[in-house]
Computed example of a mutant assay.
Amino acid sequence: MATRLAHEAGALLLDVRRRDGGHLDAASLRAAGDRSAQEFLAAALASARPADAVLSEEAADDLARLEAERVWIIDPLDGTKEYAEGRSDWAVHVALWERGELAAGAVALPGRAVTLSTDPAPEVPSTRRGSDEQPWRIAVSRSRAPAVAENVARVLPAELVPMGSAGYKVASVVLGEADGYVHAGGQYQWDSAAPVAVARAAGLHASRLDGSPLRYNDANPYLPDLLVARPELADALLAASSGSATDPAPAVRSHT
């Protein structure tokens, strides 16, 4: 279900961009995409899994999910800026949390006609990177690569590769186009739940920057930092990232 819904929401978003991209400004196109994908996913989940709770970036959170055994954690459009710019590095996230753990997930990359899922789990390609001639590639934010990533690049050494959405950056590691993804400075659970589920299914390392576990369906959805990496690179990245400051957790969003 996660795979199907992520794929279908992605197809819908492509239709919205084709239909409205020529006459809406960037802000309006981003809003139209967010709204269309949220409405589709909310209706599909309500119909197919009415007893399950949902945590979405684009919907109010009444915290009823904290009493639920199954919670869908979704980001209907991850990378709205890239989406509105006509780029391909945006994604749709659909994950299922069940009894304390991520149980399933899918990340659609509609701009590339690719959907990655926990079932079947992707196979991460082998790589020959890690030398002076071909350094490790670390995916980072297009707009603000964190200072910790700059430190990682010096220590390994590594090449920093700017990309759009969080889901796309994790997907780049799964697809073998990057070797790790380092993020600090603020994210929410919907930014990483589905990508982390897919990355773990593929055998990749996924944790906080200090190596501690990523926890989902907490009352405060803020989850400020993330490290996803090839297993052979994880220890080096954790060491280079250790002691890095992250943003203090903001207050829980208003639940209205």
Rank of each mutant, 00 (worst) to 15 (best):
D235P: 06
V155F: 06
H255K: 02
S172R: 14
P248V: 15
M163K: 12
G21Q: 04
S117N: 13
A51I: 13
P231E: 02
Y83S: 11
R253S: 02
H255A: 09
S143I: 11
V140I: 11
S212Q: 10
W190E: 06
L14G: 10
L102C: 14
L238S: 07
P213W: 07
A64L: 09
A166V: 09
G130M: 07
A32M: 11
E101R: 03
I138A: 07
W136Y: 13
L102P: 00
R154W: 07
A199L: 14
A59D: 09
D132N: 05
A178C: 15
V114R: 05
R142D: 10
L204N: 06
Q134H: 10
Q187D: 09
L12C: 10
G33P: 09
W90L: 11
Y181Q: 04
A95V: 07
D89H: 05
A44M: 10
A68N: 00
A51G: 09
N217P: 08
D191K: 12
R87Q: 09
D210L: 06
H183T: 15
D62K: 02
E177Q: 06
N151Q: 08
A139L: 14
A37W: 14
L14R: 05
A31M: 08
E69L: 08
A184H: 12
Q38W: 12
P110G: 09
A60W: 04
R30W: 08
N217F: 10
H183D: 14
V107G: 15
A158Y: 00
P76R: 11
V124K: 00
A11M: 01
D225G: 00
G33Y: 03
V54K: 00
S254H: 13
G203E: 11
R200G: 02
A11G: 11
A199C: 15
V155K: 12
D78S: 08
G33H: 10
G185W: 09
G167Y: 04
T80G: 11
T256M: 15
V161H: 03
T127C: 14
A42P: 00
H183K: 09
R17K: 08
A178P: 13
A240Q: 13
T256I: 04
A236K: 14
R49Y: 08
A60V: 03
A26I: 01
A197L: 01
E85F: 08
R253W: 10
A46R: 01
V92S: 10
E58W: 04
A153D: 14
G22V: 04
P120F: 06
A202P: 00
S141N: 01
